[in-house]
Design a binder for these strands. Structure first.
Lengths: 123, 123
DNA sequence: ACTACCCGCAACCAAGAGGTTGCCAATATG
DNA sequence: CATATTGGCAACCTCTTGGTTGCGGGTAGT
């Protein structure tokens, strides 16, 4: 992966990570990921927060693209939108892959140090 | 997955998500995930932030378990620590799986509505 | 028409995040 | 020893976040 792609991936992933960086919102996503639509009142039930608190969290999720909303009658329904989590998974895959490659290089280094020396980062 | 497990997963994942919810920190992780150790000054090079700014970000990553530090001489070295991202990947896997199951149920519903009606959430 | 419900808007508040600067201690290096 | 590098600590600032309350407006049910 080119470095500029990595930077772009970081830029597109950061808002999604930030939106998921809250216990309340993670639990909301867990309730929503069954594909159904839920009204705000339904999502408030069972939580200790006020309706406005839940609403704010839902708006955060919607701005990050993790959730979509549709007003129907007097109710606003929210549902999971799977698209936003793709760059996040890509980012984690990238990090995991790099880590695995690093382990592989280390293994190779241990087995044949003179043939594949890992150059330490230049100071 | 039981609901209490899901809640526990959310609780353990949220701090990691939050720590990754920043472009600067995502780029730091990208630089660190090659398995090598880097000093703070090295990680400062190329960024527009001050050393203290980078240090704060590194401490956030360390408190979330994404990164580990070791002082050696006058330098503090940081390296990637892969353990913390496991619950995050588990969470995303859970959400993706639930979403796929929901799609599968929808598909089944379309093909045989009378045999597998999805009960809409009760109001 | 009246009532109950669902929700959006605005104001407000406390706490934390992100970032800077200044200063000082410790370690390398000549 | 003198000096430059490295970085930890503390103070400070601004903006955002997470949360609340109060109020008013639309929608549904009777």
């Amino acid at each position: 992966m080119l470095k500029r792609d990595a930077v772009a991936l970081a830029r597109s992933s950061a808002p999604v990570f930030a939106a998921l960086g809250d216990t309340t919102r993670l639990q909301l996503v867990q309730r929503l990921c069954d594909g159904q639509y839920y009204s705000i009142s339904q999502l408030c039930a069972g939580t200790a927060l006020s309706r406005q608190g839940i609403t704010k969290h839902l708006l955060v999720l919607e701005r990050a693209g993790i959730v979509k909303s549709a007003r129907r009658g007097r109710e606003t329904h929210f549902a999971f939108a799977p698209g936003a989590i793709l760059p996040v998974q890509s980012y984690l895959d990238y990090v995991s892959t790099q880590w695995d490659l690093a382990l592989a290089r280390l293994q190779e280094f241990v087995e044949a140090p003179e043939a594949s020396a890992v150059k330490p980062a230049a100071n």
